[in-house]
Amino acid sequence: MDFLVGAEDDDGSRRGSRAPSGRRGRRRRRRRNRGGFLAPMLAVIVLLGGIGAAGFYGYTWLRGVMTPEDYTGEGAGEVVVEIKDGQTASDVAQTLEKQGVVKSARTFTGAVADAGKSSSLQPGEYRMRKQMSAAAAVKLLDPTLRLLERVTLKEGLRLSDTLTTLAKETGKPLKDFQQASKNVKALGLPGYAKGRLEGYAFPATYDITPKMTAADILTAMVDRFNQTAEKDGLKSAAKGLGHTPHEIMTIASIVQAESGNLQDMPKVARVIYNRLDTNRKLEMDSTVMYGLNKYGISATNEDLQSKSPYNTYMHTGLPPGPIANPGDHAIQAALNPAKGAWVWFVTTDPKRGITKFASTEAEFLRLKAEFEKNRGSG
């Protein structure tokens, strides 16, 4: 029993001596575990807080960098901006920023892309304002708002009349055009033009900007002629007809001057070729009048005595060069004359532009009488 009691006491004393220690240990471990968990948590929170603040400020800075500055509103003042041929939207953006129209080139490229107009910017001069919003600047670059004069030059005008028309329509001095017309090397004339602009200032409608000089305008007209000559195959077609390109242009100018309408042009061209082929004098009133610097459809007897090289009643063959600036229809007629044996034509009714053709002298005399009758009754 003592043994049993002793054993119990001994066991109890061991349990008694260990139990408090175990509970305290567990409590201490729990305390330590709580402290050990909270510390990393706090460190993470502090770290994340720092990252968050840095991220916020970093985002704010990045947004400022990535979003270019822009003006607001429609701007003020006036500035003329030129978009040159071949410039991209980025090139235009740089020009606008440099001239103080937009705050940033990047702002403009973004605005023009948003508007879907990056590829629709057209060359020309535009009236803009300074310090405009990029979106407002895009609107003012509409091609319909370009600063230009639209000048139409009719077919068959002599060079002198062409220059006068250009001076009147553009407000530039006539002497500027006259001087520029003499500097033929700068105009890009083809070699076969023999250094003369007459016949090669192509008649068409031209958009002329304020910055274009007289030489720029005449160069544009010669360029248009060169394009037409390339399209029509002028050189090769002339060779096939046994003539030089310059001779074809001379024929075309006479066709233009003598024809009452487009339908008559191939027939008038045939008359010219038939006369040249049979070594007849052309006997064209239009060439005589050109040589005398006069206007009219019928030369007088006095006019016919002129010794001008353009007097085709006196000289055989073609005159020295074109007598006007023919259009594409006249050029086409000179290259593609109608088939026929006609060697005369008479504009029997000038008011209505009626021209009749004859292959015999008797027919010609009847047509001439008809013309005299109509002229007398007019």
Results as ranks from 00 to 15, higher is better:
A204I: 03
T219I: 04
A214Q: 11
F202D: 07
S253A: 10
A214V: 10
T244L: 04
P190N: 12
I217H: 10
M249V: 10
K231D: 14
G191S: 15
A220M: 13
G240S: 14
P203T: 01
E247P: 00
G233V: 07
F225H: 03
G242P: 01
A215T: 15
E258W: 12
T228Q: 14
A238S: 15
A238R: 00
T250W: 05
G191K: 13
E258T: 11
P203S: 03
D216A: 06
I254K: 08
L197F: 09
A237N: 01
Y200S: 02
Y200N: 03
Y200V: 04
I254V: 13
K239N: 11
P190W: 11
I208F: 07
E198N: 05
L241T: 06
A237Y: 01
G233T: 10
K194H: 11
D232W: 06
G199N: 10
L241M: 12
Y192L: 00
P210A: 12
E198Y: 09
G233W: 09
S259G: 09
A204N: 15
V255M: 03
A252F: 08
Q256G: 07
G188K: 06
E198I: 08
I254W: 07
K194S: 06
M221D: 02
I208S: 05
R224N: 14
A193C: 03
R196N: 14
D207W: 02
I248F: 02
I254S: 04
D232E: 15
G240F: 00
N226E: 10
E247H: 02
M212C: 01
F202P: 01
P210N: 13
L241R: 14
Y206T: 01
